[in-house]
Design a protein around this nucleic acid. Structure first.
Length: 885
DNA sequence: TCTCGGGTG
DNA sequence: AAGTGCACCCGAGAT
């Protein structure tokens, strides 16, 4: 049998793979954030080809760069193409790695395209008696088809190919493969951007080639054509046609430094390939290699379950050891969601039901509440709140799949169990979307078999992932973070959410009426100034009025039109009185929609309270976030907005609101982490940190008065440093020249050299390890730290330095919250923790307990962790959240 | 469903 | 050659 030669057009296949999978681009990223869709697609193609074709020699050819002999001939060759997306460019080096790991060779040659390498080797193969298969996404290569060379062109996707033999070309086009060159010379190629002869397309080109055989012969016999527009074009464009023929011709004698002897196919290099799959996060490929067949068969075995009813509850008593439990609440808001069913099981037996009421009965209730029986769950906080609604107090949560997964990698968190399982290479559970559908069609399946299987699979996934995830946490030194902080915090948060905060709806409604009146006034003023009525809330219509009708200067543009953001409007305020009105309108409209009607919508009628949900597994830094509604952004800065806080009141008469906040916690963490002696000294001396910073960076004497403006600027510099600000940004922020801003920053680094060193070291750490850490080993991966794109890389560098600061501050208050809850319980106080706003804790308590809190809360908060600078806590108290003093 | 604008720390 | 301070949530309009 003849030897076989495989030649692959690397660039075109990678392009095809990338765009074929483009709609799933975000699904295909590895843990470092590298996009992998094209790499994945390339491997699919390779497997598909190697399934049927067993080469003795194999090569993947790549383009060496933009410049080739063709571009030298014809400037615009391949001109006008869109820039290759960064998400694709970054994948090329890895495709080469893959190629090598698969035992194929790769090659590129300066000044030549991949096509020419393939053409040359195909010819060599022909002469040496090989059967050759060329795989490409580019139909141009079909010109290389011959008796012993087949060209497979990808069709749809990357594995669906069309095989071009001379017979197939003949059948499709009616010409020989070599005549494709003549055809292209006449018709041109829009993707390679060469023109061909005016007005000649594929049909006419084929007709002419059939008639004359070649471009050269056509021009030798051009006189035989009768007079026509086409003939005129042919005559006029003769030079172009001849040049295009050269451009279209794939070389078969490129000066390659390699030959067939150098590209022997080595077969799969197992070890390299496994390492590569691991790096890329290609779990399905890995699974195919690693798992023994019987093991796979076992894993995919359907799950067996028993339906629980009031009559067979005793089955629960047969369960042994740790229990896996999952209460299904189809709505995201577990404070109000209906209950769809539950599953409980020990890893061998799975008991399911649609009737959550069963949980109220023993032995189920007893087991769930037993501190002696460990429970494994997904999203413990949701389970605690849901069960609390059924009168059950879930105790002893050991494993929370969602929480553990979040700590391992904040990037791939999802609220969907199936999705999270997938991230950990576990395929035996479907996602909710797959089983329940999405959008309007989402529903719990009526079919018991379908629903119960899904429930049982979820519980089994929790059970199966417990050990491996605990192992990973341990490897990352994150077990204490998980066990001592996040899991206990879950209970604290659940209690805060369940408690809720009382909101006086009437207060909000009264404010709303006043705002409505004021809005109407401002609205009419705006319409008068504009000379017409329009929707002020529409940035598009507003932009039209300001920048077209009133011809105000355009300061900034957005992707979709004129920017009308505050900083823009402020610059325009002195040019037209309407601008001030618009700013006023915006402010009030925001209060009205988000804070008056928005909050009124979420007051529970049963208790006049708002029950937010804290998301514990969302932010990239370890902070909490708050939704439905967000109680972490209730207005405070502007006096009008601040009034909203009057509606937040204690839940009992004779009680008060009490609040303590860390002062400058992030800067203190900065002083601690950087070890900067000057910064630490300033804090230890108990100085006004912004004033002392002003003294240092503006080179003022120690006893100098710091005026408000200097302090303001120094404060902006302090915050800017933490966020990784540029001189440009700082200049914008504090209204100084860029040169001045630059000087401030330079001075800062001179005065606080430890901070400068920390920034450099942290970025270096991120580059080396791919992640950064907080003081509790909370981790954030920063794949973009290696990005080619300047802005993406810069962003990653700023987050590298900011995340340990912001994240450590988050760690500190989390610890304080856990300890505070314990103290309240131990001292049998009636006080309750209500809100956490990043550096602030809000409580309600009977008036007589306030003196206790005044001492206790700051004490707990400032001793939560021991930093090498003191933590400072300030407290306030009042009858409403507004009145805190 | 996306974009803009704006509220918080 | 381009962009320019971190972390969030949500309402309204446009599509």
């Amino acid at each position: 049998m003849a030897k076989q030669l495989l030649l692959i057009d690397g660039n075109s296949i990678v392009f095809r793979a990338f765009f074929a999978m483009h709609n799933q681009i975000d699904k295909f990223t590895n843990k470092d954030g590298l996009h992998t869709a094209a790499i994945y697609g390339f491997k699919l193609m390779l497997d598909h080809v190697l399934d049927q074709f067993h080469p003795d020699a194999a090569l993947v050819a790549f383009d060496a760069g933009k410049v080739t002999f063709r571009t030298k001939m014809y400037d615009d060759y391949k001109g006008g193409r869109n820039k290759t997306p960064d998400e694709l460019t970054e994948q090329f080096p890895y495709v080469r790695e893959l190629v090598e790991a698969c035992g194929l060779h790769s090659y590129e040659l300066k000044n030549y395209e991949a096509d020419d390498i393939i053409g040359t080797l195909a010819k060599e193969g022909d002469e040496a008696g090989y059967e050759t298969l060329i795989v490409t996404g580019d139909r141009d290569l079909t010109q290389l088809a011959s008796d012993h060379t087949t060209v497979a062109v990808t069709h749809k996707g990357v594995t669906d190919t069309e095989h071009y033999t001379p017979a197939h070309v003949e059948e499709k086009l009616g010409i020989t493969p070599r005549q494709i060159i003549d055809m292209k010379a006449l018709m041109g190629d829009s993707s390679d951007n060469y023109p061909g002869v005016t007005k000649i397309g594929e049909k006419t080109a084929i007709k002419l080639v059939k008639q004359f055989g070649s471009v050269e012969n056509l021009y030798d016999h051009i006189d035989e054509l009768k007079k026509s527009k086409m003939k005129e074009h042919l005559v006029e464009d003769e030079a172009i046609a001849r040049e295009c023929k050269t451009l279209a011709t794939i070389l078969q004698d490129a000066p390659l430094e390699i030959g067939l002897d150098d590209i022997t196919y080595r077969g799969e290099q197992t070890e390299e390939l496994v390492a590569f799959y691991q790096q890329m996060g290609f779990k399905s490929f890995l699974a195919k290699m690693d798992l023994a067949p019987e093991e796979k068969a076992d894993k995919s075995a359907p799950v067996e379950y028993t339906e629980l009813t009031a009559d067979n509850l005793a089955a629960v008593d047969q369960l042994e050891g740790e229990l896996n439990f999952y209460l299904e609440m189809p709505d995201a808001n577990y404070h109000t969601s209906p209950f769809a069913g539950f599953v409980i099981g020990d890893g061998k037996t799975w008991l399911v039901s649609r009737d959550a009421e069963l949980l109220k009965q023993d032995p189920l209730k007893k087991l769930l509440e037993s501190p002696a029986v460990a429970k494994n769950v997904f999203n413990a906080k949701a389970q605690i709140v849901g069960l609390h609604r059924l009168g059950i107090d879930l105790r002893n949560v050991d494993f929370d799949l969602l929480l553990a997964s979040y700590l391992l990698n904040t990037n791939d968190n999802s609220n969907d169990l199936g999705q999270v399982a997938l991230e950990h290479d576990y395929h035996e559970v479907a996602t909710d979307e797959e089983v329940y559908g999405k959008g309007a069609k989402r529903a719990i399946p009526a079919d018991d078999q379908v629903f119960y299987t899904h429930l049982a699979q979820k519980a089994r996934a929790i059970d199966d992932l417990r050990a491996p995830l605990f192992k990973k946490l341990d490897d990352n030194q994150q077990t204490p973070l998980y066990t001592d902080i996040e899991v206990p915090l879950t209970r604290v948060l659940a209690a805060m959410e369940i408690t809720g905060i009382k909101v006086n709806a009437q207060t909000l409604k009264d404010m709303g009426s006043k705002l409505t009146e004021r809005l109407a006034d401002i609205e009419s003023q705006i319409y008068a100034a504009a000379g017409e009525e329009f929707n002020i809330n529409s940035t598009k219509q507003l932009g039209h009025i300001l920048f077209e009708k009133l011809k105000l200067p355009v300061i900034k543009k957005t992707k979709t039109g004129y920017s009308t953001a505050v900083d823009v409007l402020e610059k325009l305020a002195d040019q037209a009185p309407i601008v001030e009105d618009i700013l006023q309108y915006r402010q009030i409209a925001k209060l009205q929609s988000t804070y008056i009607t928005g909050l009124l919508k979420v007051i529970h009628s049963s208790d006049q309270k708002i029950h937010t949900r804290y998301l514990q597994t969302l932010t990239q830094t370890g902070r909490l976030s708050s939704v439905d509604p967000n109680l972490q952004n209730i207005p405070v800065r502007l006096p009008e907005g601040r009034l909203i806080r009057k509606a937040f009141v204690p839940s009992h008469a004779g009680w008060q609101i009490f609040s303590s906040d860390y002062s400058q916690v992030e800067l203190r963490v900065l002083a601690h982490i950087t070890g900067d002696k000057n910064l630490q000294e300033d804090f230890k001396n108990g100085e006004d940190i912004h004033a002392s910073t002003a003294r240092r960076i503006f080179h003022l004497p120690a006893d100098a008065e710091i005026d408000r403006n200097m302090r303001r600027r120094a404060k902006a510099v302090n915050f800017g440093i933490v966020y990784g600000i540029s001189d440009y940004g700082l200049a914008q922020r504090i209204h100084v020249s860029r040169a001045q801003a630059h000087e401030f920053i330079q001075n800062y680094f001179k005065e606080f050299p430890g901070v400068k060193k920390y920034i450099d070291d942290t970025i270096a750490f991120a580059r080396e390890h791919g992640y950064v850490e907080t003081i509790t080993h909370r981790r954030r991966y920063l794949p973009d730290i290696h990005a080619k794109s300047f802005s993406r890389r810069s962003f990653a560098e700023r987050t590298a330095m900011n995340t340990p600061i912001q994240g450590s501050a988050a760690d500190i208050i989390k610890i304080a919250m856990i300890r505070m809850k314990e103290e309240i319980k131990q001292r049998q106080l009636q006080a309750r923790m209500l809100l956490q706003i990043h550096d602030e804790l809000v409580f309600e308590a009977p008036a007589e307990e306030i003196p206790v809190l005044q001492k206790l809360v700051p004490q707990v908060m400032d001793s939560a962790v021991q930093l090498n600078v003191p933590l400072k806590v300030e407290s306030k108290v009042g009858d409403t959240w507004y009145d805190l003093k």
